[in-house]
Amino acid sequence: MAASAPALSIPIEKRKSVEEERELVRMAQRGEEPAFEELVRRHQQRVFALVGGILRRQEDVEDIAQQVFLKVYLSLRKFDQRAAFSTWLYKITVNECWDYLRKKKVRPLVYESDLSEEQVSRLDGIVSAERVSLNPNERAEVKQLLERMLDRLPEQDRQLLVLKEIEGFSVQELAEILGLNVNTVKVRLFRARGRILDGYRRRLGSAERYGANSAANREG
C-alpha cells in the first residue's frame, strides 16, 4: 500500500499543476499581469533551451525569448486552451526562431581549416572504444569535431538532434511542438544520427584504408 502511494500521487500532482496553469492562463487573459509573470517564470528555461537549441548561438537568445513572451501576451486572449499552454508557447517559439533565421539569413558555419584524416580517425576510435575518461586535449578535440559534424547536418536534422540530445526535449514533446507524428520524429532522429558522420565518412574510409594498407605493408 505504501509502495503504491507515490505512483498514485504523481498523476494527481501533475493534474493539479495542469489545472493551476490553466487558471493562471485564465487570469492572464483577464489582464492580471502577475499571473502572466508567473507563466513567464515557469516556462522561461524551456523557451531559452528551445531558442538556443535552434539557433545554436548564445547571443540574441534572451532578446528572442522576450519577443516570444511579448507575442504570447498580445495574442493570449485568442488562446482557447484546447491545447496545453506549453505546446502553444513552444510552437510560437519555434516560429519566432525560424523567422529570425530567415531574416538574418544565417548560413551554417564553414570552417577554414578542418581536421586531418588521421585526427578524425583517431577521434572516432576514441569515441567507438567508449573510453571512460578523456584527457583535456581529447575532450576539446571531440567537442570541436562534434560541433562541426552538427553544423554540417541539414538544418532540420540538426535542430531535432540538438533539441533531443542536448536540450533534453522528449520525442513526445518534439512531436507536439513541430506538429509531427511521434513515429515520424523517431525516424527523423534515426536518420539524423546516421547522417552525423556523413561529412567525415569518406575521410574515415580513406583513413581506414590507409591504416589497412600500412599494416599490410608492414606485414609484407
Binding site: V51, G53, V127, E165
Partner: peptide, 14 residues
C-alpha cells in the same frame, strides 16, 4: 556514440 560521448562536452543554451 558520438552524441553520447560528445554531448556532455557541448555548451548548453544560456
Amino acid at each position: 556514440n558520438w552524441l553520447r560521448v560528445g554531448v556532455p562536452l557541448l555548451d548548453k543554451s544560456p
